[in-house]
Amino acid sequence: MKRIAALLLAGVMALGLFGCGEKSPTADAVSVGEALTQADTSLPEMTVVTSKDENAELNFTTLCDADYGLVSSYYYAYASDGTAPEVAIVTTKKEADNAKVMEAIVKHVETRRGTMAEYSPEEVELVTNYTLVRRGRVICYIVSKKRGLSETAFTEYMDGIEAADAK
């Protein structure tokens, strides 16, 4: 009897462990990106490329050189006049791959900062104060004068998704 009870308890604990796993919210990068760029009124005219475009994989190289196989969807908006503002949302296929994509984005920032330092020093601070955060499989990268607006929009959007998932 004790043995059976012990086995049952062990089984319940094992199931409990599965339940304790981190929730990994995800979202379509294009929808999140559109919400962010609409929220940030300081952004100049932006050129947008997304995972829905014809040359999606090639266009992704403008943002970073991470392996496109890790990416589920992406949205990337950059200032049409070549100035610093940028907004990117990347949804990875596995949360474990976030670090690789984020590392590649940091490299992109370094390259941009180097270019700005030589040709547009007034833009360096904007690039330096970038935001790079993640929620579950969704990575958010923002360079903007009012990046707080985009950050808030991102948080609210992801909160909404988590709340919907919880239901």
Binding site: T61, T62, L63, T111
Partner: peptide
């Protein structure tokens, strides 16, 4: 080899 914008050429 560092230019990130070559994909724009295929637009």
């Amino acid at each position: 080899f560092q230019d990130e914008n070559f994909s724009k050429l295929l637009k």
